[in-house]
């Protein structure tokens, strides 16, 4: 799936994942976005984000 997506599409997909898990859009999507920049990004939502990324992009983030 990743192979046929360009950079903007990947970032857009990641943004949708973040919105879906954090339940808000109050963050600026960038490559340097971190847990400190988005409300509600705690240890549990972090794990949900990782699991969802692995699921959507069919990859392993070990």
């Amino acid at each position: 799936m990743v192979n046929c997506m360009d950079r903007n599409e990947i970032i857009n997909e990641l943004r949708n994942i973040f919105i879906g898990i954090l339940h808000h859009e109050n963050f600026v999507m960038s490559e340097s976005l971190s847990a400190a920049d988005a409300d509600g990004w705690d240890s549990l939502s972090h794990m949900n984000i990782i699991t969802e990324i692995e699921h959507r992009f069919k990859c392993d983030l070990n």
Binding site: S43, L44, H46, M47, I50, T51
Partner: peptide, 15 residues
Amino acid sequence: LTDYIFTPLNFTFRR
């Protein structure tokens, strides 16, 4: 505990 025990465990068991 969250940072050093729970999060690594949760990562291991995430599937």
